[in-house]
Design a protein around this nucleic acid. Sequence first.
DNA 1: TCCTTGACTAGGG
DNA 2: GCCCTAGCCAAGG
Length: 98
Amino acid sequence: MAAITDEQVETVRGLVARIPSGSVATYGDIAEAAGLSSARTVGWIMRTDSSDLPWHRVISASGRPAAHLATRQLERLRAEGVLAVDGRVPLREYRHAF
DNA sequence: TCCTTGACTAGGG
DNA sequence: GCCCTAGCCAAGG
């Protein structure tokens, strides 16, 4: 199977770690920057990885975080200066370009 | 090996 | 701008 390599995972971690406080990135952005096959793979890594990375800065392309984490993530983001509007983050303003 | 699940995305109605 | 559908990929049972 075309399993993900440790190198790919490390790249994703690096990208997430370099997202500055007050900015966010989409799954698609991370996937593309890391050279992954699809955005779903990034979601899979985030779900399985238990590191202390700022995963809360990664949101969907709709500007809305995953439903089960929405409340917590939006709260953390707000603490970093990312103001969500009606549960949605204005990507146009906070999206981080790699 | 097949089928299901999931922290996704783009497109059409 | 929201809802539904199809395409997408890796892992676990």
